[in-house]
Design a protein around this nucleic acid. Structure first.
Lengths: 126, 126
DNA sequence: CAGAATCCACATCGATACTG
DNA sequence: CAGTATCGATGTGGATTCTG
């Protein structure tokens, strides 16, 4: 069985939030990472993705389903249960996530330094 | 000397426009590609980037400058001349561009097929 | 030539309330 | 539980006009 997702999985203070690379829309990469170890239910995503609303989560998952990145399986039970799982195509995004992480590990600190220096110059009146 | 940029460098019909990966904002990746072979002037970007407005081009270049990706050199001449050039940090983005291209070459057709199939299912009334 | 200024259309994202 | 429906804030990108 797959373990529960860590609520602290995505630290809002993490500098990766300033990365210039983006996969899909705002929550896409995090959802893909959540699905790395196996299928997940709708409500499971709400735990690590603290501030996502059901509406936006649904939209993002639908887009992933539309593009063949995830499969959606609804079980006809009460209460309802729906599971999302990465397809091989969706799993290929994990390589990109890794590439972005690698780039960030190597270069993000330079970007942040450059940005700080830029504002120093600007704020101190040209 | 660097050769003039090809006006057809970025084909609007190119399927890469549906890629789920994005670097910076809309025109950033294309600008970085334009700078691959050496420094370029403001007006040079306007040739391959057919539909960019000066305002948006300026904003994008400023953001790249702010983040240490490009240097901006203004020559005090009349008429004015300004040159933009990739820094080593900006040049590191070329690796990501390549990673995105590689992903696209391998997987973009699957994405497009999945999307078409999805709309088939939806349009023909579920 | 290389932009700055202004206005505006659109899409994404979020807050809130409600439902099969 | 897993959404849907509605509304509104925000921000990006584009069109147009003007300038050192």
């Amino acid at each position: 069985m797959t373990k529960p997702l860590d609520p602290q999985m995505f630290d809002p203070a993490c500098p990766s939030s300033v990365t210039p690379i983006r996969i899909g829309d705002k929550w896409t990469a995090m959802i893909v990472i959540c699905l790395e170890d196996g299928p997940r239910r709708f409500s499971e995503f709400l735990v690590p993705l603290h501030h996502v609303t059901p509406k936006v989560l649904t939209e993002t998952l639908r887009a992933l389903e539309r593009d063949g990145m995830v499969t959606r399986t609804a079980y006809p039970e009460i209460p309802p249960r729906v599971e999302y799982e990465l397809t091989p195509l969706g799993r290929s995004l994990l390589d990109l996530v890794d590439a972005c992480r690698t780039w960030g590990d190597k270069h993000l600190s330079q970007l942040i330094e450059a940005r700080d220096a830029y504002w120093q110059r600007v704020d101190s009146g040209h």
